[in-house]
């Protein structure tokens, strides 16, 4: 297990390293472009030359990259050219707000999709199953910006219950309802489908038949025998959903003008704010790599055939 974890960790580090190189390559390979972006369209050539020299851009690319990487690892993420603020100071509050959004979305979608998926997968082909399956196809077919439009049309334009965009500088509950709903709507359908498939597969396993032949009741079969094995896949998938969620977060935050990580990245990209884009990209990749790692570890922990085999008395 430790060996497995060590290998996974090394892989994750290698991926992060490759990602950092890619990000730097894309954004800063052309030093002159960087100077234009930082100093603005109307800066003069001498100004740019001076800036490049001052900031060490006349060194070879690989040296610049290594220096940037070193600074990044140390926590020096540069200064936003648009906001004139250190990036490392700007990011945490934005991440927190996005974290709240994503956390609430998970809180809604996980229980909902487990219940729906289990109900549907328990007995394949029933009317409940078909209704749930169809509903989840529909919700996963509506992209976030469209469900944001539809839900806003209903709750903001028509019923007038909720605000259509964030306006308060702080945090307000009524402002996160719609963003959370939009995020959860899409992911719930997807996760419910995974849960359903996993549940349906488990229900066809011989050991479920054994339980039936022992005289176990349907409730006992579902809760004692099926659930534990059926949830391994969906729990692993929740982790892998995080990249989707992060993409969705950008759209949803932009739509509802929610001042989180997504809007920050979006605005940074519109402003050509190189340092900010780099930091945002690196942070989002870090989140994904960590969740993938967690997903792998979780899978080994949840799968009895892997996790328990390493016990000393495990020799079969």
């Amino acid at each position: 297990m430790t060996r497995y974890a060590a290998i996974k960790l090394a892989e994750a580090l290698a991926v992060m390293l490759a990602v950092s190189f890619l990000v730097y390559l894309v954004l800063e390979a052309n030093a002159r472009d960087v100077a234009v972006k930082v100093l603005g369209q109307f800066s003069t050539e001498p100004q740019r030359d001076l800036w490049l020299a001052e900031n060490g851009y006349n060194q070879p690319f690989i040296v610049r990259y290594l220096r940037w990487l070193w600074n990044f690892v140390r926590g020096d993420w540069g200064v936003s050219s648009h906001y004139r603020e250190p990036v490392a100071v700007m990011l945490p509050p934005r991440l927190l707000r996005t974290g709240i959004l994503a956390g609430l979305a998970l809180l809604v979608m996980v229980p909902a999709s487990f219940v729906l998926g289990i109900l549907a997968g328990m007995r394949e082909g029933t009317r409940t199953d078909r209704a749930i399956s169809f509903a989840s196809v529909v919700t996963t077919s509506v992209p976030e910006f469209a469900s944001a439009v539809f839900l806003s049309a209903i709750f903001v334009f028509w019923l007038g219950w909720l605000p259509g965009a964030s306006t308060t500088p702080g945090f307000a509950w009524e402002e996160v309802v719609l963003p959370v709903l939009v995020l959860a709507l899409y992911a719930t359908g997807y996760l419910a489908r995974i849960t359903r498939a996993s549940m349906a597969e488990v229900m066809m396993q011989p050991y479920v038949r054994t339980a039936l032949m022992k005289g176990a009741s349907p409730a006992r079969i579902v809760f004692r025998h099926a659930l534990r094995n059926a949830l391994v896949a969906p729990i692993t998938v929740i982790m892998l959903q995080i990249p989707w969620l992060l993409s969705g977060v950008i759209v949803v935050e932009v739509y509802f003008a929610y001042k989180g990580f997504g809007t920050l990245l979006y605005e940074a990209s519109l402003n050509g704010d190189v340092a900010l884009i780099e930091a945002c990209a690196m942070v989002s990749v870090l989140v994904i790599v960590v969740t993938q790692l967690a997903s792998d570890v979780l899978y080994t922990l949840l799968n009895p055939r892997i996790s328990f085999a390493r016990r000393p008395d495990g020799a079969a």
Partner: peptide, 22 residues
């Protein structure tokens, strides 16, 4: 597989934004 892992470590939208912005 490693190359695929690297690319798939980006949220798709971040990847699109990076490419389109550049």
């Amino acid at each position: 597989s490693f190359a695929a892992n690297v690319i798939l470590s980006f949220p798709v939208l971040v990847l699109y934004i990076l490419i389109i912005v550049t």
